[in-house]
Design a protein around this nucleic acid. Structure first.
Lengths: 219, 219
DNA sequence: TGTTGTTATAAAATCGATTATTGTGCTTAG
DNA sequence: CTAAGCACAATAATCGATTTTATAACAACA
């Protein structure tokens, strides 16, 4: 079928925002480093104005810190901040999952199964980490999608980006990874069975284990 | 005593951000209206670059909607969005208050009493609405301040701004206002008594009544 | 030696002008 | 009378250059 939706043609600023968001979340910038605007200009092949607009958005989003008259810097990896982010993820994603299970329809069940399947198949190829990450994000976002609150989803996305900054910087932990991957499947099962309590409990445990891994990035 | 803290001298962009945030929250812009950048340039007496940077931040913050290639617009007042915002306020501020009561020290108790008192005294002069609003925001922010989570406080601020956009557009409701004002005092009492359950219940009721008032702005 | 003041340098912020895109009204073909 | 196409006007986005501000290096002085 046709796709008549008007394709929001991207501006330079929005492309830079997307690219930098991705790079920041995936640890392409050293934590705590001052952002060299002129360097970025070349790195992303753009002019100053769209670049600065992107940096301003990223700062408002929380992936950069803006200090008046002295530019932007990448936030440090701080143990207490990670605690905060992980704790908030537990609360908010737990809340969202409960609501999603109550609201989710048959279409959601299908998409959830699909997302879990794609994720399961993808993690066999260890070369394409980026692709796996994208599917992983997609899975978690699908899981809570029908929670009914736009703002809750917005906050969760934001926290997810923050959390992943830590996780991506941390050394890998294959044995834990195995457990985490298995939990994705179990989450789907519990969601389809509409077992609100158990699902929430498992998700919180899932986040907690990821948190243990992510802690490897700071101290 | 001296104040040796380096005073983050403001940039034009950050001043415009603050001013526009204030104006947007207080309904100085018609909901749904397209933002005329050239008009704002004159209104705030600034150049294009800092203005656009401020608009980008406001969009990332949620007080403006950015549509690529066709500028910025003030979000509409939508009943379902208000429901969402109010619901999230209940959840997040309730959560924050519980934690604040558990963590808050003697210093917090003093500040809370002070904030409540200032607010109570201020609402006698109905001319200076802006001043009252500021004290009101300050009170609610003091109430949850020691919750221990920077991110939770950040989300609450953001929701507060969204909520106030609706409340400030709604017609006044003097009788309800009276109840709401009384509740501020009661909240302090319950907080000092460390009655977590009751305080949370009252805060949720408080938000709910405000929500009833705010609904007057849309349908 | 440590402190303060001064200048040079680098970088951030801002301006004015240019380019690209969208929306509008008119024209014309069906 | 409707709809598609085309210019033109309006406005959003971007560029290149300038101004402002902070940082660093150095000198003079206590």
């Amino acid at each position: 079928m046709d796709v008549p939706q008007r394709k929001q043609s991207a501006t330079t600023a929005s492309r830079v925002f997307d690219a930098m968001r991705h790079d920041l979340v995936n640890g392409r910038f050293a934590a705590g480093e001052k952002v060299a605007i002129n360097g970025l200009k070349e790195q992303y092949k753009v002019g100053l104005s769209p670049l600065r607009e992107a940096l301003n958005r990223l700062a408002a989003y929380g992936l950069l810190v803006q200090e008046n008259q002295r530019g932007f810097r990448v936030p440090r990896l701080d143990r207490r901040e990670l605690d905060d982010v992980a704790g908030m993820r537990r609360e908010l994603e737990g809340m969202a999952l409960e609501r999603a299970i109550l609201n989710g329809d048959a279409e959601w069940e299908s998409e959830l199964l699909a997302a879990a399947h794609r994720l399961k198949r993808a993690d066999l190829s260890p070369t394409k980490v980026d692709e796996w990450e994208q599917l992983h994000t997609r899975f978690h976002s699908t899981l809570v999608a029908p929670c009914g609150s736009v703002w809750l989803l917005r906050f969760i996305d934001q926290l997810h980006d923050q959390f992943d900054r830590y996780r991506r910087m941390a050394p890998g932990a294959p044995e834990v990874r195995k457990i985490l991957d298995a939990q994705h499947g179990e989450l789907v099962e519990l969601a389809l069975e509409r077992d609100v309590k158990a699902a929430r409990g498992l998700l919180e445990d899932h986040i907690d284990r990821s948190y243990q891994v992510a802690m490897g990035s700071c101290k």
